[in-house]
Nucleic acid binder design. Structure first.
Lengths: 270, 270
DNA sequence: AGTTGCAACAGGGA
DNA sequence: CTCCCTGTTGCAAC
């Protein structure tokens, strides 16, 4: 379940590690995750050189030269692993990308995931990434002003809003838990009911929770490009059903909120 | 609040009364109910001859020759009145249509309503009427088989389904009350939970309630083309809050169902 | 009481 | 734990 912090770190590592490498070969074991027939997909990638990697929300953008972007969404669980050579490869993978220098990366989806290849002209029309909202790690766009603008006129619950990738890209059902707890907000709070200071606290909470997790290398049960786990494991309320609230000591509850589960302190989150 | 029975009678009366008349003049006091600028609207109607009138759901179709249709939706309350001459005209009206023989009709909207004029080529793209579902008075299309087909796969509440003009055209929040009571169904019953015999009873109830009301000339508090009231006034449960259920004698309740009100017998409607 | 369009919400499938 | 599509529901506007 990689969310923004994991993906952000992964993209940074891919950028540093893969830049300048040229793709030699693409092996596809699971064609349904592609946006193209396997042959077209391979043709688009092979012989292209990695210009750099970046991320927006939960999507990795691997820029290739000339004129192609390799888009990756790991879905609920999934990994990208880099290897200097063929030794120690995992037995199972969905995609394998070999570079001309003998190094390679394998991609695994534990449930659903996407690997899309697009030419420069089609990229702007790639619906899933074209509609992504602002990325909380991009300080120029994720500002309090933009956040308030985005909330203006919205009527729904705050949790559904924050998890909609069209509004803010990168928040999933893991980090949302501590974000809402930090902001002192119940997941079902209606947006119009939020007071000025609650909106500001929420804005701060989003940045803090995600950046702290990113600084720690992401979740302890996820692994990075080099198969190393992250160091973030101390959720405040997330997945701590029945344990005491770190603020007031009351028992943390697991509740249904729409179609997702939420972990909340019934006393601290209104 | 004319629904299908009132509109059906109105269209029949208009057909008999107006057929063969030629429009001499159109006066517009409320341009916002039109689909065209007043001048274009007038130009389309003036000098055309009435070929006939019919209805689908709550819409009246007045066929004009050559090649124009005059569409009328009376919204929540509204009337069409015919006069042999200018004597006894009501003081207030939204639209006045004069015929070359000196007779005329005036149209009144008490709240919202539409008067649209369309050429034959645009008529099929007139969204509001193009998406109308089957009309319960049209025996060829409103069949048990078609009704069951339409219900297939639907998941929502039965009242919302029946009132959606895309499914069945003509049922509003007045007659729906007695239809559901006759069928013994609670407004919030989910469609997938309906048993075969309940579906059949509902189908019969729709036809019976609407046809009986139509035979009686529609609601007693509505008036027809000649300003005569209908004779249907004895609702079974509709608008009879606090009165006894005609079947079991228990008190009829008014409840909120979604955004509309429903009158039900809590004992007879499951 | 009516109709539309849109946002919000819920369920199923990949 | 994902995202997407669809149908349904609710709300505000004429």
């Amino acid at each position: 379940m990689p969310e923004l912090p994991e993906i952000w770190n992964l993209a940074r590592q891919m950028d540093e590690t893969l830049r300048g490498k040229r793709i030699a070969k693409v092996e596809i074991k699971q064609p349904k995750c592609l946006n193209l027939p396997p042959e077209d997909f391979q043709k688009l990638l092979v012989d292209k050189e990695v210009q750099g990697a970046s991320s927006r929300g939960k999507w990795v953008f691997l820029k290739l030269s000339p004129g192609v972007t390799f888009l990756l969404n790991l879905g609920m669980g999934g990994e990208v692993l880099y290897f200097k050579d063929e030794k120690n490869l995992p037995q199972k993978y969905r995609l394998r990308v070999d570079f001309q220098d003998g190094s390679l990366m394998v991609i695994n989806f534990f449930w659903f995931g996407y690997a899309h290849a697009l030419g420069d002209q089609e990229l702007p029309e790639h619906f899933p990434t074209a509609v992504l909202g602002m990325d909380p790690m991009k300080e120029g766009e994720f500002t309090l002003l933009n956040f308030k603008k985005l909330l203006k006129g919205k009527k729904g619950g705050i949790k559904a809003f924050l998890m909609d990738q069209k509004n803010i890209a990168g928040i999933g059902n893991v980090y949302i838990q501590d974000i809402l707890f930090t902001a002192g907000l119940h997941p079902n709070r209606k947006i119009p009911s939020l007071k000025e200071n609650e909106v500001e606290g929420l804005f701060k909470a989003i940045g803090e929770v995600l950046k702290e997790a990113a600084d720690l290398g992401g979740l302890a049960y996820e692994t990075d490009l080099f198969n190393r786990p992250g160091r973030f494991k101390d959720f405040l309320v997330g997945y701590r059903e029945g344990k005491p609230c770190p603020s007031c000591g009351l028992e943390i509850k697991k509740i249904k909120t729409g179609s997702t589960s939420s972990y909340i302190c019934p006393s601290c989150q209104k």
